[in-house]
């Protein structure tokens, strides 16, 4: 029999964590990892921690509680910059998974194929961590330390994800490639966000997932896109601007070479889609 703690506050949660235990939220990764019918405890269930709930606009941008479920992202009123994140939310597992799985869980599980990561990278997301030593903030890219590895220190939890106001601008897009339509792990995925001013790309953010141990931004491409017309963006994409940021592996879903090729094509399509959206 395991103890099941459902702390209502962050202070309470951190206190419980200090005593040790398994951190749980949507449980969509924890249960598949065990053959047993129960999680081994003690379990610290974060889904009722007030600080980890809700989506809100703050002075500095947008704040997503770590225990926000993907279906909440889908139904939230968010600016077009978050369209990519919403598209990703629709692709996380199935409706059943979206009703249970959380943003924070997706990040802390740190799968190379985590659907939420590319979109959040293009939104310049920062993570807010809390632990016995207090609070700290890290860029998402620094939080994701590798495949299944994060920068969480012992006793520390992910409290919220922050998107700064400057990154909540423009419009976002997300494309996922899998071998079937629903309930599929990505072979490759791409998120992009363009801020267009005066018919020119003012800022571009592009990230690729499932093509390396962690999803990554494409700084060389982003630099090349700055200042050009959105309708010319897709044509500006080249393998040389994409490949250096990737480290794809081959697995049952596809080989490494294929991942490299389709990543380039998906980037083009995401940019083409954003340009077309902008025309409307």
């Amino acid at each position: 029999m395991s103890a099941w703690h459902r702390p209502a506050s962050l202070t309470e949660a951190i206190g419980l964590l200090a005593e040790g235990g398994v951190v749980a939220a949507g449980c969509t990764d924890l249960f598949p990892a065990t053959r047993r019918q129960a999680l081994s405890g003690p379990v610290i269930d974060l889904t009722r921690v007030a600080e980890m709930r809700g989506i809100s606009e703050t002075r500095g941008g947008w704040r997503f509680g770590a225990a926000v479920r993907w279906s909440e992202v889908l139904s939230a009123a968010l600016p077009p910059a978050f369209d990519g994140l919403k598209a990703a939310a629709r692709e996380v597992g199935s409706v059943q998974i979206q009703n249970a799985g959380t943003l924070g869980g997706n990040l802390c599980n740190a799968s190379p194929a985590a659907d939420g990561v590319p979109g959040l990278l293009t939104l310049e997301a920062e993570v807010e961590l809390a632990g016995p030593a207090g609070m700290r903030r890290l860029p998402l890219a620094a939080f994701l330390a590798g495949a299944r590895r994060t920068a969480l220190a012992p006793g520390e939890v992910l409290v919220a994800i922050h998107v700064p106001s400057h990154a909540a601008a423009g419009r976002g897009a997300f494309l996922k490639l899998g071998a079937r339509r629903y309930l599929v792990i990505s072979i490759a995925m791409v998120a992009a966000r363009l801020v267009v001013k005066g018919g020119r790309i003012d800022r571009a953010a592009v990230a690729v997932g499932a093509c390396g141990p962690v999803a990554s931004r494409l700084p060389a491409l982003e630099a090349a896109l700055a200042g050009i017309a959105p309708e010319d963006a897709a044509a500006a994409v080249s393998e040389a601007l994409v490949a250096p940021a990737l480290a794809p592996i081959g697995d049952v879903r596809g080989d490494a070479e294929y991942r490299g090729v389709v990543a380039v094509e998906l980037v083009r399509r995401a940019l083409r889609g954003l340009a077309a959206e902008g025309m409307r």
Binding site: C27, F31, V43, D45, Q96, A100
Partner: peptide, 11 residues
Amino acid sequence: PVCACLTPAAQ
């Protein structure tokens, strides 16, 4: 709709 196999009874 949720998967009952992924839902802890507590929740």
